Simulated scan of single mutants.
Amino acid sequence: MGSINVKNNKLYLDFRYKGQRCREYTKLIDNSSNRRRLGQLLKSIEAEITLGTFDYAKYFPKSKKVEKFAVLAERKRKAKAYFESPDAPRLNEFAEIWLSEKQIEWRKGHYEDVDGILRKYIIPMFGSKKISAITKQQILSFRSTLAKVPGRKGKVLSPSRINHIMTPLRMMLTEAADRYEFTSPWKNIKALKVGRTEVDPFNLQEVELVIQSAPANFKAYYITRFFTGLRTGEIDGLMWKDVDLKSKTIAVNQSLVRGELSDLKTEGSYRVVMLPDRVVEALAEHKTVSSLKYKYVFTNTKHQPLNYQVISRSVWYPTLRRAGLRPRN
């Protein structure tokens, strides 16, 4: 808040503007009438500073600070012009361009995950904004809002999930800043700290309970899963041509995710798995009852590839309940 002070029996104003202390001297003698006069002037100045309409040159045209603040205003104008690129599109428009370009790079499952995040979280918040005009404060405010969004089973979104949602926004801002020549606001924004994941493995006794409690047509499936360590996509995409019961091996060559067969993520994922006798026996028995005209080892009742979400909901968790075991992945 500004004040009226005196020096050499002459009044002067003391106030702050744009973070700087300003002293403007007058030729008015220190008396009650002049103090009232300057008091009204000071109220007008402070009101205009609050509203963002204050013009220094209007009140103090001969002040040395006029030029100083004019230089600062010009720098701000140029910075804003650089920040808000005239060629940059709105975020929802750029999101469509960016996704279409990434579709050829990404797996179907990853593409659908990112597309879902954009449409559920990012576009409703930023879609109508010019992508070059999104600020750091808006990004941090958005992240704070996510921390209050209900997740599964009524719980709020975890730090890991929030980081996962923020990643596409960061990638788009970085790419757009490079294309349209503006400065990305994503500076010094660190990912939320994620706590250690508690590993809750099955012991051998629990494994046996699961196998005993599984439906007859899924016993071979779970025996193979437990004793080979194949990932969900790898076992769902397993084909008879890759199973050699004589040499007791499985060649892991592909993965089935959301109904789409694709290559494995890394070169190290391509491997040959040695089978223990129990798996060999289970697969040999399964082979006698499965329809070999279908290429997949494990299929549903319609002889179609397995859908992980359906199996999880209709087979896995009911099996755990029958086995008397706590729910877990």
Rank of each mutant, 00 (worst) to 15 (best):
V199I: 15
K78A: 04
S63L: 09
D113A: 11
Y111R: 06
L283F: 02
E105Y: 10
N163V: 04
Y222I: 10
K241V: 12
N203C: 12
S314D: 10
R21N: 07
K129N: 11
P185V: 13
Y17A: 02
S262G: 13
G154Y: 09
Y308C: 00
S141T: 15
Y25S: 04
V149E: 15
K108V: 11
L292T: 10
L41S: 03
E48D: 12
F227N: 05
E267G: 09
S262K: 09
M274I: 14
M171F: 12
L264H: 08
N307T: 11
K78T: 10
L264T: 12
T50V: 08
Q137Y: 14
R37T: 12
E260S: 11
R37L: 14
I122G: 03
G324R: 07
D263E: 13
K64L: 08
S290T: 12
F182H: 05
P61M: 06
D55C: 11
G19T: 09
V71I: 14
S100W: 02
I104G: 01
R179G: 00
M166S: 00
R179V: 10
I189D: 08
L42I: 10
D263K: 13
V273A: 02
K120T: 15
P150S: 07
R258F: 07
K136G: 14
R37I: 06
E285P: 00
D14F: 02
W316L: 05
E112R: 15
G52M: 05
S290M: 11
S291E: 08
L306D: 01
K248S: 08
S33E: 14
E48C: 01
K120G: 02
F60N: 02
L320K: 00
Q138R: 06
Y82Q: 14
V315R: 01
V207I: 15
I131C: 02
N92K: 12
Y25V: 02
K10S: 01
L292I: 13
V297W: 02
T249R: 00
T288Q: 09
Q20M: 07
W106T: 03
H303Y: 13
I45R: 07
L238Q: 04
K43C: 01
R328H: 11
S32R: 14
I131F: 09
S144R: 13
P327L: 01
P150G: 10
N300Y: 03
L306A: 02
C22V: 15
S312I: 12
I123V: 14
V194H: 02
W186S: 04
P276L: 12
P305W: 05
K65C: 02
